[in-house]
Design a binder for these strands. Structure first.
Lengths: 110, 110
DNA sequence: TCAATACATAGCCAAATGGCTATGCATTCG
DNA sequence: CGAATGCATAGCCATTTGGCTATGTATTGA
């Protein structure tokens, strides 16, 4: 069910672009047409379409065309793989960090 | 304290390479020297060092040199920003997905 | 029917990425 | 002291990435 972590970098690559990440954030609220998704960005149509293809190739979204409008929908599966990885490993590094923070004078990060 | 999500793509970019992601996974277990980290990979030294610089520039690791050995340590802060984003939004898309799964005949993904 | 809309495809281009070799330079270790 | 170790830096190179323009095609809408 859960993927082995070896496929996560592919998902990260898809999310590593600000435009694509914003699209994913937008799609959490629900499906949208290509032009609605593109509206917030000052970018030529074809450039934006490329981003959508990257997201679809990574399995983060699916899309279906009805008439002349393509509707794009978020696909949670891969995102959940990533979410699982973080939820699981967070405990481990938090534990280490807490132990360290108890020893060192831990102010705040950066 | 928590970052706005606009900086997450930077972290994703750092994790989008299989080598770098593996290094991060390895560092969850604790700090390690550069050569120990590099050992699992068939890669020339300078290539690997570049990856480490990317991780450090993204704020995912820190490092300190003692003698001729540089020790690399995981820095949880940025990872936790990502973890927060996923933990938070997962609820939303899960809710949508469940609602959809109840309507459609939801088999399995791919 | 005919123009506007909403994508789609082809192809170009500059910059970033990820790899390499060659070389340098401090530390140990024998 | 001299060689081996552990990085570090410089610079080259192919590929990928992220943008563009020009053009094509299938639906609407008037």
């Amino acid at each position: 069910m859960a993927m082995h972590s070896s496929s996560l970098p592919t998902v990260f690559a898809a999310l590593s672009d600000a435009t694509r990440f914003a699209v994913v954030e937008r799609l959490i609220a629900g499906p949208a047409s290509v032009s609605d998704l593109a509206a917030p960005f000052s970018m030529a149509g074809p450039s934006f379409l490329k981003h959508l293809r990257v997201l679809e190739d990574a399995g983060l979204v699916s899309s279906e065309k009805t008439g002349r409008v393509r509707t794009v929908t978020l696909v949670p599966a891969r995102l959940n793989d990533v979410a699982d990885w973080f939820a699981w490993h967070r405990r481990e590094w938090d534990a280490r960090f807490d132990r360290l923070g108890a020893l060192l004078n831990e102010g705040d990060d950066q």
